[in-house]
């Protein structure tokens, strides 16, 4: 594909100003939809880990003879 045919493609018969924003919205919305729960999952696991760590410290302080959970 040479430069002029690429330009022709991008121009979309004069409708580029409508067509490419439509495709951009499609991809941006779906990307956001896809990554939002993955970020939330990472945050959840991090919070859970720190909660478990705090709980472990508390249990060790209360019981001088540490009982190791399986």
């Amino acid at each position: 594909m040479n430069a002029s045919s690429l330009q022709h493609f991008l121009a979309m018969g004069g409708y580029a100003g409508y067509l490419w924003p439509a495709y951009a919205v499609f991809f941006i919305v779906l990307l956001a939809d896809f990554f939002a729960p993955l970020l939330r999952r990472r945050r959840l696991l991090r919070e859970l880990r720190s909660r478990l760590a705090r709980k472990a410290v508390r249990q060790q302080r209360q019981a001088p003879t540490p009982t190791e959970p399986a």
């Binding site: 729960p37 993955l38 999952r41 959840l44 859970l48 880990r49």
Partner: peptide
């Protein structure tokens, strides 16, 4: 699937299987 996995971790955060995944 990604969303349901995340939500299940949240809803079941007190359960052993989630603890295993977290640690």
């Amino acid at each position: 699937f990604g969303r349901v996995r995340t939500d299940l971790l949240d809803l079941e955060s007190g359960k052993d299987w989630v603890r295993t995944i977290a640690t």
